[in-house]
Amino acid sequence: MSTIAVFIERRGGAIKRAALEAITAARFHADRVIALELGSDVDGLLAAYGVHEVVSIEHALLERYSSQAVAEAIAQWAKSRQVATLFFGATAMGKELAPRVAVHLEAAYVPDCVELAASDGHLDAVRPLYAGKVRATVRPLTERAVYSLRPNMFTARPAEQPSTPEFSTFTPSLSQEQCRVVVTEIVRNEGKLDVLEADIVVSGGRGMKGPEHFVLIEELAAVLGGAVGASRAVVDAGWRPHSEQVGQTGKTVSPNLYLACGISGAVQHLAGMSSSKVIAAINKDKDAPIFKVADYGIVGDVFEVIPKLIERIRALKQSSAS
């Protein structure tokens, strides 16, 4: 019987959607899905997502999060249960943990998967390379394999029938030497939705002409309930903070809607957003490369188009609310 264990990442107590996506993907590829939790903070969500078993990893040394110790603990558990396949969300946390776990398990590590496909006994994964210009099908050559799944590429869907998971606790054997790195503080960007966590991202580029005009982008993002993103050109110019940069040297996002305003669509920008579900663009140049990858576009001036868009969308939201 095939088993996949999924690491359950929580931030502020809530299970991250990337973990629910990984559980959903695991259900397709395994008969048994095991959720691996840090601590015993359990809620009904894991049952709704049909996991068969929930394992809480507990140890006094894990009170403060240490990627080094957690990876060691997960690997010890996987060995003790002979679990050969593990999924992580390719989040900041997952991307640090998964390769470490793989080393401890002498497993292949397959990063940033956007598709999974079983083929003659292997679980192959597709992942983008070279800024998304090509995709490779990666096959683990080892008995065990660890995958990280790019957020928002797999749908998170509750199981048809909720499960009644078995619960157990696993206590790894850890020493202080294995906790030489700890997280001491998490500083949230207050009051701002992050491009990595938003369903809608509205980004502005050099076509916005100056930092003062980003109020238009902010207002459009606000009516859509989305986050503000930026091209590197405007981040380098100091118009917007680095945390908003989308692209190869910024963040890789896959929102449901990516709306690019005054962005040309350079390949390095596309690298960070081309896996978005829907791409829309406003640009005054009809030949701008962004239109080649766009689902919907307006050829026009951002300063004329955005205010009208805000007005129309606001009206739409009001009519659907009433």
Binding site: A92, R188, K192, D194
Partner: peptide
């Protein structure tokens, strides 16, 4: 300090 979704983490190590 490292970047994470929606903010940053402060870490200590040796």
């Amino acid at each position: 300090e490292r970047d994470i979704e929606g903010g940053k983490e402060v870490l200590e190590a040796t």
